[in-house]
Simulated scan of single mutants.
Amino acid sequence: MGFHDVRFPASLSFGSVGGPERRTEIVTLSNGAEERSTPWAHSRRRFDAGMGMRSLDDLAALIGFFEARAGQLHGFRWKDWSDWKSCLPSDRVGPPDQPLGAGDGARTDFQLLKTYRSGGESYARPITKPVAGTVRVAVGGDERAEGVHFTVDALTGVVSFAVAPGLGAPVTAGYEFDVPVRFDTDRIEASVASFSAGEIPSVPVIEVRE
């Protein structure tokens, strides 16, 4: 098993169905009350790469991608069109978008995070597959230059500074990102509806936990 650092064709994933999944364990007590807990610290995303009526070239591209990944064997990048950048869909990525932590004068590595908030609650999601060339980082509100002040590991989402941010200095970042996934099937069933079109009803894809 390995991870291929290549993105599933974005033109084929556009229009796909999917999103986050949680696992909640619910125990109903004798008095009817519930106790709820979860073994998962983080959500897991599922998608369906199946295609309705598309060109035969599109089908060939999907089958070629599937074969190159050896079915479920190798992971790959997936663009989640509903959630693919650090800001709102209508906004442009900027260095203040997401807090990564605060400097202590010694720490040089910071994990990219995306925080989801509703009411008084929040969830910080680790971002492990940033899109190369899109990461913008600031320390104390001042933007830093990639390749000069910091580097980004595109396979882990870790930002590494050449010089540790000072004590209490807020570290923030903006970026585009992909989801690490694999096919959740070892079989593709395609139907050729005409000489110029065909369809693949369902190709499940699931997020890879790293």
Rank of each mutant, 00 (worst) to 15 (best):
A41M: 15
T134Q: 05
A68Y: 01
G32C: 06
R77E: 13
V203M: 11
D178Q: 00
F3K: 10
G119Q: 04
G52P: 01
T28I: 12
F47D: 08
F195E: 15
D104K: 01
G75H: 00
F66V: 05
A164W: 05
V158G: 01
E35Q: 11
R136Y: 03
P89T: 00
R36T: 14
E207I: 14
G174E: 08
V205R: 01
S86K: 00
P204L: 08
V208C: 09
A70S: 13
D48H: 04
S82N: 11
S16H: 06
V6Q: 12
G18Q: 06
R23E: 14
G147W: 04
P39F: 05
S202R: 15
L56T: 13
V181Q: 00
A169S: 13
G168A: 11
S191G: 14
V17L: 10
V27G: 01
V179W: 03
H4Y: 10
G19I: 10
L112H: 05
A41T: 13
L112Q: 00
G168D: 12
F66K: 06
T28F: 10
R182P: 02
G101V: 01
E189I: 12
G157C: 05
S13R: 05
R136F: 02
A124L: 05
L12N: 00
A124S: 15
E199F: 12
G133V: 00
G94Q: 15
A193F: 03
A49V: 09
I200Q: 03
G147A: 00
G105H: 08
T151R: 02
Q98S: 02
T28D: 10
A49M: 12
R107K: 14
